[in-house]
Design a binder for these strands. Structure first.
Length: 113
DNA sequence: CGAATGACCAAGC
DNA sequence: GGCTTGGCCATTC
């Protein structure tokens, strides 16, 4: 049976790109959400959505990471406890989820970017 | 430097 | 509408 690799968080990113991602994520207003791809584009990486996801995973608790969702308006990170937490936080900000646990990006999407 | 990683995305069946 | 595939790209080892 396969040994599962531990989910040790890789070192918190201390790089400029991540910092830039964090800076942008911090600007997402309460009650709004942005997508990974949206943030990536805003930073000049139209195809670097995955990298944005990494920045989140690298984890800095000071940022409103819960306001970042995927392009379908859904929450990633499902098998983790973070999923419930993210959903709870968003709902606390007045964001409603559809039947498929999806957010209406037309309504709650952050357009500032 | 090469290989692996991953909280993504768009396109194709 | 859901599942699979390939591409993306910075960071890590």
């Amino acid at each position: 049976m396969k040994v599962k690799p531990e989910i040790h968080p890789r070192k918190p990113a201390s790089s400029t790109y991540f910092s830039r991602v964090y800076a942008l994520v911090r600007r997402i207003p309460r009650g709004r959400v942005a997508t990974y791809g949206q943030i990536a584009r805003a930073l000049g990486m139209p195809r670097g959505a995955r990298t944005v996801g990494w920045a989140m995973r690298a984890g800095d608790e000071k940022i409103p990471w819960h306001r970042v969702v995927n392009a379908r308006g859904g929450i990633s990170v499902r098998p983790t406890p973070g999923y419930r937490e993210q959903r709870a936080r968003l709902r606390a900000e007045g964001i409603r989820f559809g039947r498929d646990a999806r957010i209406d990006l037309e309504k709650y999407g952050w357009r500032k970017v």
